[in-house]
Design a binder for these strands. Structure first.
Lengths: 77, 77
DNA sequence: ATATAACAGGTTGTTTATAACCTTTTATTC
DNA sequence: GAATAAAAGGTTATAAACAACCTGTTATAT
């Protein structure tokens, strides 16, 4: 599982906690399955970009902002 | 196919043209299949976020920058 | 201590991404 | 016009995303 999957999961969970909402609630807003959203947060399932967009929209942010944790690494392995 | 797939495809193609490289070349750098990259550019296949990261890295940018075309829409249908 | 809410772990059928193959078409170079 | 490069269109076996189901665990409220 690519590293970015876990980092994105943490980002989504942090956003959710900051907004004081449950997995069920944000999954409903994003019109996605709550069980899958849980797996995304835990880094246990990789999502497609369509899902990325829906989750970002549910948080009222862009996909770019949702991925703002991403950085360029020197000397990529 | 979600709208963002087509927009992302255009973004990738524009980046590639700006850098004056072929589909084969950037696919090699990203360590992905050239045929699949072509489909992404044409908006004919939806990619996972792991692929997004690899493509962004191949262009020496972050995934956030790769998705900077994304905007928040008012009154989402 | 009990009940409920929220979260976590696991599974399954269907659809689709991925790696990889091939042929055809278009663009570029000479 | 011919040869080559680049792009486009199509296909397939395998793995995994997705929707959805279920049971178990932890946190919270009373």
């Amino acid at each position: 599982m690519p590293q970015i999957v876990g980092l994105l999961g943490e980002r989504i969970r942090n956003l959710r906690k900051e907004n004081n909402i449950t997995i069920e609630e944000i999954a409903f807003k994003a019109e996605i399955d709550a069980q899958n959203l849980r797996k995304y947060e835990l880094g246990k399932q990789e999502m497609k970009v369509g899902m990325l967009k829906r989750i970002a929209t549910a948080f009222s942010i862009t996909t770019s902002e949702l991925l703002n944790f991403d950085i360029l690494k020197e000397n990529e392995e």
